[in-house]
Each structure stands twice: as C-alpha cells, then as structure tokens.
Amino acid sequence: MKGQLNAFLAALQFLTRIRLSSGDNPPEAWQRSVAYFPLVGLLLGLILAGAWQALSYLVPASARAGLVLALAVFLSGGLHLDGFIDSMDGLFSGRERERILAIMKDSHVGAHGVTAVVTLLVLKYSLLAALPPGHLWLGSLPLSPSLVLMPVLSRWAMVPALTCFPYARKEGLGTLFQAGRGRRSLVTATLITALLGWLIMGPAGLVYLLLVALVSLGWCNWIRRLLGGLTGDTYGALAEITEVFILAAYFFRPW
C-alpha cells in the first residue's frame, strides 16, 4: 500500500506543482507512477472545473477562459507546454534525426516553437471561451464534464507512449520511467481512465477514450518513424495536442 501511495505522489510531483512528499522517490516509485497519471489528471480536472464554475459568477466567459487556461498552465508548471515548444522547433525544422534531437534539447526557443505555442494557446482559449455550461452528477456539483475529463485523458495519452514505445535517447526522462516497459501500468491506467470516463460522461467518456487512444498511437508511431523513438518533449507535446483535440471534439460529437 505504501508503495502505491509513493507511486501516486511521484506522479503528482512529476505532472504538477503540487508537492505532498519530499521528492526523494525510489526508482520503482517512478516506474509505477505511470499507472496513476489519470488520477492526477482527475485532480487537475476537478480543480479546473471548480475554478470554471466559481468564475462563472464573477467574470464574463472570455475572461473566465483566459483565467482557467492560465491556472492550467500554472498547475502543470508549464511542463507540457515546454515539451510542445521544443518538439515543434525540432519537428518543423526539416532536418535529419540527430539534428532534430539536438534542436529539441536546446533550451533556446525558435520561430517554429513560438508560432506553434501561440497557435495552441489561441485554440485552447477560443475553445474554452465557447464551452457551454455543463453539469456533472458527482456530488450534485455543477461542474463542466469536459473540463474534468480533459486532463484525465491527456495524462492517460502519455501512458501508452511511455509503456509501448522506445525512448530515442540513451538517457533522460524515458530512462526514469523505463520507457518501452511496464505494460501492467498501461492496463491499470486504462481501466482507471475507462471507469472515470464512464462516471463523468457515461458512454461518451468511453468514446473519447477510444479517440484519444487513436490520437496517441498515431502520434507515437509518427515520432518513432521519424526519430526512432520518443522523447520527454514529445510526451509533453502529446498531452497538449490531446487537450486541444478533446475540447474540439466536444463541439463535433455526434452522440
């Protein structure tokens, strides 16, 4: 039980600014933590949806969207945005594999990264501003189900990337999480996500999970063909892309 708690706290420490432990986690805690990514996403989703609902009584929809977007970036520490920027800099450079990896590792931000992240944030803001009010049954709280589910699915999307695909570098984030191994964590994370999806949005939650699985596998296969494996930056980029996809899919859902 203690080992599972340490794994959850390690996931919380990695994915958010929230610190409930000293941070000195053993290697096995980091490897097991992947299974708890969706639960960390649930915590983030409840915070964002709660802030969304509270702000609805205080500010207009456009201001609410901007504030909730800022809160999401703050809670994650900009971790995924940083990975998205670095990934776009490298992937849009049109160079060979080694040069792309070098560009992604460079701390300087290029024009491709700036253009891509501005586009991403504008898309997120626009979709959030247009998001209609929704009601989640959980505790009879009037929370937006799409906002609750979005971080759950985006954090789950990284699980197959971490467990089913090789790491492109000899050292780095992938070695910490034992990239390419840990299929048990994938099964656990998927069961947790499916349950949460059903509780939050019913059958539609499972449809979202299936669509996100396709997005995750498509992204991972493309990156593997291009770079021979994934990197920490591409994990973060996947999370950001998935969030935009979920928000956009909400407006085009046929169910």
Rank of each mutant, 00 (worst) to 15 (best):
D24P: 01
A54S: 11
G41A: 12
V73D: 01
V59W: 08
L79N: 11
F14G: 02
L46E: 13
F74K: 10
L15N: 15
L71H: 08
A29H: 03
A61D: 14
G23D: 00
P27H: 07
I18R: 09
L44E: 14
E28M: 03
L43C: 12
L75Q: 11
L39I: 15
P27N: 05
S56C: 14
S33Q: 06
L71A: 07
L58W: 13
P27R: 09
R19K: 07
L58M: 15
V59G: 02
F14S: 08
R32W: 06
S33G: 09
L69M: 09
A11S: 13
Q31Y: 02
P26R: 04
L67W: 06
V73P: 00
Y57W: 14
A65Y: 09
G41W: 14
E28H: 11
V68F: 04
R19A: 01
R17L: 14
Q53Y: 15
Q53P: 01
L42S: 12
L58F: 08
L48N: 00
A11W: 10
A11T: 13
P26H: 02
V73S: 03
L55H: 06
A54M: 15
L44H: 09
A35E: 12
A11P: 08
E28P: 04
L79W: 14
F74Y: 14
L55N: 06
L39Q: 10
L55K: 05
P38W: 12
L71G: 05
P26Q: 09
L48R: 00
P26A: 10
V59I: 15
G45Q: 06
N25H: 08
P26E: 02
G77I: 09
L20T: 02
R17F: 01
A54C: 07
Y36Q: 08
E28F: 13
S56L: 10
S22R: 00
A10E: 01
L55R: 11
Q31V: 14
L43F: 15
A10P: 01
S76T: 15
S21T: 00
A70R: 01
I18W: 15
L42K: 14
